[in-house]
Design a binder for these strands. Structure first.
Lengths: 220, 220, 220, 220
DNA sequence: CATGAATGAGGTTTCATTCAT
DNA sequence: TATGAATGAAACCTCATTCAT
């Protein structure tokens, strides 16, 4: 599906967010690896205690590193937010590149919902962080995230539109419907209503897909 | 519908959160009024800049008060979070006491969705605050909020279950469906995807209601 | 014993400490009465929590008065310290005017020790306050207190000297011995070593008097 | 005199107060050294101005450190009080372990009085602080201090009792007599009556020892 | 590369005192 | 005379960041 990829490449090309982060090291691989490590250890702390209530000292301790070492690979605490955002972005782009292999609308919608929910489940903490701490992510990076959000929604929109054009779906507002799909993935990640307490991820995917399809399918 | 009201009363009774907040004044009316005023001025700041990035000095300035005056009516900055939560809670209880006058499932669902969305629209900032800053709200108060959330979802659940029992709806998992209704209200409040940019609240309510109904309705 | 009284009058004459405290009222009796009341309620708080850790609000509440009322009779929180000091001073002067009716050295020492201990017991809190919070009493007032301290010690000194001159006592350094008598009174007031836990005031007086006498008495 | 030492060790064992103080550093030696330094610079300020009237800023300036550096080694301003108390405690334990080598009651009393007075002279400011600012020392630490106070008094008591049993002393209440010895040391540290103005420490020790002995000695 | 001591601006909070009512 | 809301300076403390080692 080269068309899609081009579209994506067009809008997401540009200096990688990560490359903009200051470091004292020249070993790119090491830098990347250490940053992922730090972000991975910091993120649960952010989710549990909040970004502002988590000190760099705590982060360095969670990493079994010195404070100086953390700053060796990062320019500032805020940069960890960028890494979290960037990881989400990377995975979403990955997701968009691999979903929709199927040209059949129903199958395509099914698989994209499932994949999307699985992605949100895997990056639960990133999703939460992006909801909760937008003020701790640089405006520019928020925009980059908004962009992939938008692309993601557009992708769902396209699948739906395709289905509508094929006469398989009947949807009054595909854009809003696509947004619903998007939110439904995030919703699983939100621990707030304990969805995970009374349902497995697979059941969740199944029920939600069925509900959406029963609403979208064109009957006549 | 007295049964519902009783249920609600039973679970929501308890010492008001507000009464637990320290104050230097004995004039209850004044205290309440000033607190609402302070919370009202502070909330937009929190939403715009984040709770931690908003200083008490800024809040006092936004209120045209001295810092000391703010602390005359509040025990701490965190207490403003409680007020925000409490306001949401109050309005949700109010909402639950007045919705669903209609015994017809479809009408009842329609009106409850509409009212719920309007409530979320009205308390947009409170909704956002509760999503973003849970770590700045005392555990106990988060629980109180979770309680009304739960009651609210249960309420939607009951409407749906009623409809299912009446043979009007056909829903695989009413609980999850109810959760979808709940989230759909919050979703409007979330500026993140700019739903409001391409749609009015009324349109949003209409489209979403239709989509949900088309999914829920039992077609023989 | 007019000689003594003259001495005292000479050094203690001067503007009363209390008269120097600002007030909004002209009714001298009322002012005095209220001040004693306030000081009496505040002193235990100071002893229990410390002067600085006791707020004017707390004091006003302990007095069942408004903050404004407290300031109606006092110019500042510090003034309460002055009142405490002044009360001690007044009682010590009173004490000095009435002790020593007896010309016999031993009897005179006995009674003055006993009276002094009883005074310290009665003004326990004042004694403690003067030890603990000298930095919260104006320099000038500290000096006035030091003056009566000095007079008190001198008084004991005189009794001892009289005894030495009469050949009844044999004391190497009457000044230091007098100081010991003084401290022994304060010592009772100091809860720190729980003297009061294993001894009544009367026993304390008896033992201490005997010990001092057995040290002071001239044997040959 | 191994029995005494054992007794002391038994009751004074326990987690060091200092170990309970929070620090950002892991270098125990550095932490201890810096804390002693800070406490040493702060204590005279406390004595001169009072604990509450001395700000952390002043302390940090007196130490030629930044405020942050002070908090790097201490968890709070109050902790300096603990250090002051702990230093007194340490020295008193040291004192108790080394005094009383002499089995002759009179010599033993003489030397213990002298050593005690010298200790109080050396730790003048600590003594004053403990008298004046008990409300700024955690209850638990006050208790630990009360414990060594008690041990110290008991130690004097034992010496006296030994003398009484040997028929050398005749004392009605050794416990109270011991307390007098204790207080007499503190009394020197109290600047309040300017004992130091008209007497050297050695003279003070001499006079007080003679007075006590002349009271304690058994004259058939 | 790594460490962690040091910095100090800036945050929250307290509280003596004033003054309009 | 009495009230208590309001003030705002100043206190304690945190923590992101730097930099000498």
């Amino acid at each position: 599906m080269p068309r899609k990829e081009q579209t994506l490449r067009n809008t997401t090309t540009g200096a990688s967010t990560e490359a903009a982060i200051r470091t004292m090291s020249n070993d790119d691989n090491l830098v990347h690896e250490r940053r992922q490590f730090i972000a991975g250890r910091a993120l649960p702390l952010f989710v549990r205690q909040g970004f502002n209530r988590t000190s760099v000292r705590e982060i360095s301790q969670a990493c079994d590193m010195s404070i100086g070492a953390v700053y060796h690979y990062l320019g500032s605490k805020d940069d960890i937010g960028l890494l979290v955002a960037e990881q989400m972005r990377r995975e979403m782009i990955e997701f968009m590149n691999h979903a929709f292999e199927d040209p059949r609308p129903v199958e395509s919608l099914r698989s994209s919902i499932a994949e999307w929910c699985r992605l949100c489940d895997r990056l639960k903490d990133n999703v939460l962080f992006l909801y909760r701490e937008p003020r701790n992510i640089k405006e520019a990076v928020q925009k980059r995230i908004a962009e992939v959000d938008e692309q993601c929604i557009s992708m769902f929109d396209k699948v739906l539109t395709m289905g509508v054009e094929a006469g398989v779906f009947k949807i009054a507002n595909t854009r809003l419907f696509a947004l619903n799909v998007y939110v439904l993935g995030n919703m699983w990640a939100f621990g707030r209503w304990y969805v995970g307490k009374f349902m497995t991820l697979d059941e969740y995917i199944e029920f939600q897909t069925d509900a959406l399809l029963s609403s979208a399918l064109n009957r006549r």
